[in-house]
Nucleic acid binder design. Structure first.
Length: 433
RNA sequence: GGUGAGGUUCCCGAGUGGCCAAAGGGAUCAGACUGUAAAUCUGACGCGCGAGCUUCGGUGGUUCGAAUCCACCCCUCACCA
């Protein structure tokens, strides 16, 4: 990072979508240790890849000597952010929101270093200062500073307001006031003077800036991050199974590692800048080396290693790497009995195979049930193309009704393991018993 | 409230009585080629190994037969008020 200012580094990484006066912000950041915040609303029981960039962003600021506040939206999560959403969302119960908030809290703590010292990072929940406000105070003390005219004019809610039929409830419309209040509150309580967020948050952030100026008389700043896109135009952060979660129980370190390993060339160096702490110079150098390299580029494996380590720690990375080696080297004999036991612990999808009823279960059903394929049809397709491999042996459509033969104990590795490969990338471990 | 146009399989979008599980494109999955990449080509793509079963906003009806016709209802869009 050396001589670059933080803002220069972020810019070089392509991590800035919009900022309030860049000059002022740059000066502010260079002359002070700034307290900044980013909010994460509990919309599920785990953060996902979309949250990773802002989360890492907080850490980038922390590394430059600033103080991050990670805000869990226990209150805002009850309301639902309408920004650029084309539909009203259904509300979650307070129990659920609270539970999810706690999940997010523990996840966030893994990324940012929190401590109790004066300048240490802070983990906050806006429920704490929002829940107890009574309606009249809210309307008089906060609501009075907002003109509906301005609220309506925001791009983030315009579609919903202008388009007949979609509509927006008063509840969601109020969201921007709540978030603005957070900023004003944090400014007052902690001297927070910068809010960051995804580019869809610009409207909410500027709302908070205005409120803070009106109420606290303080001039504060805002910065948004770009939406992560893929070169081919498809949505980033999705796999066959849906979102890629940061929770190891929802997306195993192995699956996580694989996700990054499969990054297209066209995206990999950009993603290295977004998702790792490698310097821009090092990334550029890597890109140039890959460009003249014979064969496979190393960008993907570096990216996968860095991000997996970041999210799942060294252990998670090592485990993911070990499974990858074993499965993709094509050499099953390199694994000993202990390795097989470890595979499922390390996150390779696995299930117990019961001998009973096996004769009545077609492979199509069996594999679809354990999630190896979305439907029996896909298994059928794979069988017909010789893309199903069990313990190194190919099986075809002829074997569909012959599960007992395919999963004959005699053929089990170490008397109990069957490693099924469907296609090039999907693996599943069956344990006999 | 009035008038006009619509609601089709994950998405977009054809289909206006049987040949429709429903054109075409996208997404997705698999195969070939590669580098667990891209591009390209091939196949699959409602569910089911199969016989077969269940779909075209909802509910009833007409018909041997309906996504297609009729009635009512729900929703959306456009314009008017």
């Amino acid at each position: 990072m050396s001589e670059m200012t933080l803002l220069q580094d972020l810019k070089a990484r392509g991590l800035i979508a919009q900022t309030t006066s860049e000059e002022e912000l740059d000066q502010h950041l260079n002359e002070n240790s700034v307290t900044l915040y980013c909010g994460f609303d509990p919309t599920a029981d785990s953060l996902h890849l979309g949250h990773l960039v802002p989360l890492l962003m907080l850490k980038r600021f922390q590394d430059y000597g600033h103080r991050p506040i990670a805000l869990v939206g226990g209150a805002t999560g009850m309301i639902g952010d309408p920004s650029f959403k084309d539909q009203e969302r259904s509300l979650n119960t307070s129990d659920v929101v609270e539970q999810w908030s706690n999940c997010l809290k523990s996840q966030i703590s893994r990324f940012i270093h929190f401590d109790d010292t004066e300048g240490g990072a802070i983990l906050a929940n806006n429920y704490d200062w929002t829940a107890s406000i009574d309606v009249l105070s809210f309307l008089r003390d906060i609501g009075k500073h907002f003109t509906v005219n301005k609220m309506i004019a925001k791009e983030s809610v315009r579609q919903r307001i202008e388009r007949e039929g979609s509509g927006i409830s008063f509840t969601e419309f109020t969201y921007q006031i709540l978030q603005s209040y957070d900023y004003q509150y944090l400014n007052k309580a902690y001297g927070c003077s910068l809010q960051i967020g995804g580019s869809d948050q610009w409207g909410n952030i500027t709302g908070g800036i205005d409120l803070t100026r009106r109420v606290n008389g303080t001039h504060v700043h805002g910065l948004t991050l770009p939406l992560i896109t893929k070169a081919d135009g498809t949505k980033f952060g999705k796999t066959e199974g849906g979102a890629v979660w940061l929770d190891a129980n929802k997306t195993s370190p192995y699956a996580f590692y694989q996700f990054w390993l499969q990054t297209p060339d066209a995206d990999v160096y950009r993603f290295l800048k977004f998702f790792t702490f490698m310097s821009v110079a090092d990334i550029d150098a890597l890109e140039q080396q890959d460009a003249v390299r014979e064969g496979k580029p190393v960008g993907q494996s570096v990216l996968a290693r860095e991000v997996t380590t970041l999210v799942h720690g060294e252990d998670g990375y090592v485990a993911a790497q070990r499974i990858t080696e074993a499965l993709f080297s094509g050499d099953l004999s390199s694994l000993d009995e202990g390795d097989y036991a470890q595979l499922s612990l390390d996150g390779l999808p696995s299930s117990v195979l019961s001998p009973e009823g096996l004769a009545d279960t077609p492979l199509t059903t069996l594999f679809a049930d354990v999630g190896l394929a979305a439907s029996g049809k896909q298994v059928k397709d794979a069988l017909q193309r010789k893309a199903v491999i069990v313990n190194g042996e190919e099986f075809g459509m002829d074997d569909n009704l012959n599960a007992p033969g395919v999963f004959n104990v005699e053929r089990a590795l170490f008397g109990k393991y069957f490693l099924v490969k469907l296609g090039k990338k999907k693996h599943h471990l069956f344990v006999y018993g």
